Amino acid sequence: MSNHQNPTHSIELTREATNRYVARNAAGVEVTFGRGEDLMSPVELLLAAIAGCSSIDVDTVTSRSSEPTEFKVEASGNKIAEENGGSHLEDLNLSFNLSFPDDEGGRKAAGLVDRLVKLSHDKYCTVSRTVEHGTPVAFETEISVGREEDGNKDTE
């Protein structure tokens, strides 16, 4: 079995205010999130990423046969407190609620959904497969004191 590597995916996160952040991809697309009434939390973004990844897998194929009349996916999980004070999610679940027109294309699309959801889970959804595989996360830090607005930093 070979491990084929594709290009690296990355985002840049910047702080707008306390508990308010913007994630920006290389194309300049932005998502604002954080902690507050008008923001999605990082945990909610993780759930959205899992739901979005599988939704793309299902929608890409079914929409070739028929446009859905309803396409809703609920992602949920239980936050578990750990003895060491940390936490994690368990019992992650995606619930697909899709409807298609009652015509030949709609029936064809509806007949594909269960298989596509399984393929997404087992093979295609990078996000859920990464979570299930338990991929390690590395952390690096670079800290400066007295950093100038133009990006210059003090060095020792």
Rank of each mutant, 00 (worst) to 15 (best):
M1A: 10
M1G: 12
S2K: 09
Q5F: 11
T8W: 02
I11A: 13
E16F: 06
N19D: 13
Y21L: 14
V22T: 11
V22L: 05
V22Y: 04
A23G: 05
G28S: 03
E30C: 07
V31Q: 15
T32R: 14
G34N: 00
R35D: 11
E37C: 13
E37N: 15
L39H: 01
S41K: 10
I50Q: 11
C53G: 11
S54V: 06
S54H: 14
S55H: 02
D57G: 03
V58M: 02
D59A: 15
T62Y: 01
T62N: 01
S65A: 14
S65R: 10
E67N: 12
P68C: 01
T69A: 02
E70A: 11
A75N: 01
S76R: 09
G77R: 03
I80E: 09
E83Q: 07
H88A: 05
H88K: 07
H88D: 08
E90I: 05
L92A: 14
N93Q: 07
L94Y: 03
S95E: 13
S95F: 12
F96T: 04
N97M: 08
L98N: 07
S99G: 09
S99D: 12
F100W: 06
F100G: 08
E104V: 04
G105R: 01
G106T: 00
G106C: 01
G106D: 00
R107T: 04
G111R: 00
G111I: 00
V113E: 04
V113S: 09
D114C: 00
K118S: 11
K118V: 07
L119M: 13
T126H: 13
V127K: 03
V131I: 15
V131Q: 13
E132L: 14
G134C: 05
T135A: 09
A138N: 09
A138Y: 04
T141S: 15
I143K: 13
V145T: 14
E148N: 00
E149V: 04
D150G: 05
D150E: 04
G151Q: 05
K153P: 09
